[in-house]
Amino acid sequence: MDFTGICDRLKAIGAPGILGVDEPREKNPEDKKDLGRAGDSFVLVDPEELEGFLRFCRDDTELQFELLCDLTATDPGNDDEELWLNYNLLSIAHKHRLAVKAKISKENSNAPSVADVYRAAQWHEREAAEMFGITYRNHPDPRHILLPDDWIGYPLRKDYEYPKEYRGISCE
């Protein structure tokens, strides 16, 4: 199924929390500030409804996204007040993909954990949590995964300040 077909199906089965879709578009030649957008289409979802939304995607027979391929977050820049949560779903039965995005505020960055829906999410959420400072609510194992337990700061945030030293080792 292509992206439009997936969106129609999502609307038809009443998947919760859909805020909109974003598709690539051409540059507007009259507006110089408009850069257009290249790449993939994605569905924008309310972060609070994520768990239910993904459950719908997984269980519907026509969508059947059995695999959570990727889960990550993105800090679009210091000017932005929001962090993006990115989910990438893959259906083995129907051989299609869906990119899902949710936006949460940087100030109060927490989101529901989807480890109940896809077990694959557990480690990805641990990584996103330590790199972006996101709190995944009801996460079964919220420890650091790649960074040491005593690491300060969230390295993939744009406002991250590099440490001067770590345990007596100079980093400059």
Binding site: P24, L35, G36, R37, A38, G39, D40, F42, C69, D70, N88, L90, R97, A99
Partner: peptide, 18 residues
């Protein structure tokens, strides 16, 4: 590179490299 976002997954020897 034009503004936008893209995900590409390819078949690595170990699985999908995205």
């Amino acid at each position: 590179v034009p503004a936008g976002e893209a995900y590409v997954g390819i078949e690595n020897p170990r699985g999908e490299l995205g």
